[in-house]
Design a protein around this nucleic acid. Structure first.
Lengths: 225, 225
DNA sequence: GATGTCTGATTGGTTGACCAATGAAGCCTG
DNA sequence: CAGGCTTCATTGGTCAACCAATCAGACATC
C-alpha cells in the first residue's frame, strides 16, 4: 500500500466537523478527491473499518462510527492523538499520578544495573539539553525507560499510551523560540532523586520521589508555567 | 472483507512457535491453505501490516515483526490477548491497584445519579448471578461503568485495556461446572461499600473501599482460590 | 390514495490479468 | 577465478471489468 492514502484519509476526515453516522462520498468520487487510486483508498478504508472507526455497506455507503473533530486526524477514537484531543492537562497528570509511582516502586526492585545506568545518563543529558524540545524528548525517554525497567508488560503498555498523550500535549505547547530549561529547573533534582532511590533499591523512596516530582509538575502547571 | 480471513490468519500464525523475522509462505500458497481468496488474505495481511505485526516487501516476501507464541492469536504485540499472554495474575492486579482506586475517587465526584443507580443495580445483580460466568460478566460491567463514570477519557481507555486483560485471564480459569458465588463471597459487601461511598460523594472512602476490595481479591488469589 | 412489485442506477466487493520489485543463477569479461 | 552484468522466476502490488447488495423511483394493483 502506498504509505500516504491512510494519513490523507484521516486528515481529510478531520478537516471538518462531521457527526457520527456521516456518510462519506462514494469511493469512486473520494479517491480522486484525495489524489489516490481507488485501490489505495479501499485499503485505507479497510484499515479504518477494522479499527472500528468506519462502517461500510455494499449498496449503501461508508459511514463514520464516531464524530470527526476538526483539526485532528480521524482514528478509532482510541488512538493516542484522539485521546489527547479529549484529555485535559490535569486529566493526563492524574493518569501519570496513578501509574508512575507504581512503576518507580517496581523499577527499584526490577531494573537491571544497565538500565539504571542509562537512566542516570538520561537525567544528566537533560541538564544540558540544547532547548526545551531536546529536553522533552529526553524526559519522555527517561520515563519510558523507567516504565520498561519495571518489568510489568501491562503497565508498560499503559504508560506508553499515557506518555504518548503527554507528548502530544507538550509538543503542542512548545514555542520554537524557547531556549533550554534553566539550571534551577525543579525536575533536574527530582530526576536525580528518583535514580538515586533506584540505585539504592529503595522501593518506598522511589515511589515517594516520583510522587514528589509529579506533584511539583502539577504545582508548576497551576502556577501558569 | 469476509469476516473470517483476519481471525484465520491470526490463528494460523499462532498455531506454532515462529521467530521474529519468520517468512510467511507466498500469498498464492497461503490463501488456499487458509481456505480464503487471495484478496481476502491480502486484506488480512494489510491490517496486520498496519498494526505493525508484519513487514511486507515486493519480491522478497512477508515477515513477522515479532515472534508468534503457540496457542495465542497473532497481533501487534499490543492487543489485549497478546498482553494477557505476557502478563501474570499479580501483574494484572498491580495494574488494577494503580488505576482503580484513582478511578473510584474520581467517580465519587463525577458520576451522575443515573450511573450510581446503575452501579447499585449491577452490584445487586451480581449477588444473584446464575453462575460464575454470569457473575464475572456483571463484575466486568460494574468496573467498566465505574471507570466511565470517573470522566477521565485517558484513564477510561487504560482501564478498558486492564479490564480486557483481566477478562482473558478470568475466562481462561472458569470451569463450566462451577456454580455461582456463595452468598458469603467477599466481593459482594465490597461492591456495596464502593457504591455507598459514591452515593455519599465521599472520595476518600471510595478510594479506600476500592483498595480494600482489590486487596481482598489479592489475598484470595494468594490463598489459592 | 395507499401499498406492493419491479427496474435500474449506485454502492461497495471480487477477480484474473498484468505490473513492479527482488534476488538467485547463469553468462561474460578481465 | 573473481567480479559485474543480465536474465528470469518469484514475490507482493495494481487495475479495469465485472459481481453482489441496496434503495429510490416508476408502475401496477386494490
Amino acid at each position: 500500500m502506498k504509505p500516504d492514502a491512510l494519513p490523507r484519509l484521516r486528515s481529510w476526515l478531520g478537516s471538518e466537523a462531521r457527526p457520527e453516522g456521516f456518510r462519506l462520498p462514494p469511493e469512486r468520487e473520494l479517491a480522486p478527491l484525495l489524489g489516490v487510486s481507488r485501490t489505495d483508498l479501499r485499503n485505507a478504508l479497510l484499515v479504518l473499518e477494522t479499527e472500528g472507526g468506519l462502517e461500510r455497506q455494499v449498496g449503501r455507503g461508508t459511514f463514520l462510527r464516531h464524530a470527526a473533530r476538526p483539526g485532528a486526524d480521524y482514528g478509532s477514537g482510541r488512538d493516542i492523538s484522539s485521546l489527547a484531543e479529549r484529555t485535559g492537562p490535569m486529566e493526563a497528570m492524574n493518569a501519570r499520578l496513578a501509574l508512575e509511582p507504581e512503576l518507580a516502586q517496581m523499577a527499584a526492585l526490577q531494573a537491571s544495573p544497565l538500565q539504571i545506568s542509562e537512566l542516570r545518563e538520561l537525567a544528566q543529558a537533560m541538564r544540558v539539553a540544547p532547548d526545551w524540545a531536546g529536553y522533552e524528548k529526553l524526559d519522555a525517554d527517561f520515563h519510558e525507560l523507567l516504565a520498561k525497567s519495571a518489568g510489568n508488560p501491562l503497565l508498560y503498555e499503559l504508560h506508553r499510551i499515557v506518555n504518548g498523550v503527554r507528548l502530544v500535549v507538550v509538543w503542542r505547547r512548545l514555542n520554537p523560540e524557547d531556549v533550554s530549561p534553566p539550571s534551577s529547573y525543579h525536575s533536574f533534582a527530582e530526576h536525580d532523586a528518583i535514580v538515586a532511590a533506584l540505585e539504592r533499591r529503595d522501593q518506598a523512596a522511589a515511589r515517594a520521589a516520583m510522587r514528589a516530582h509529579l506533584a511539583a509538575t502539577i504545582a508548576a502547571m497551576a502556577g501558569g508555567a
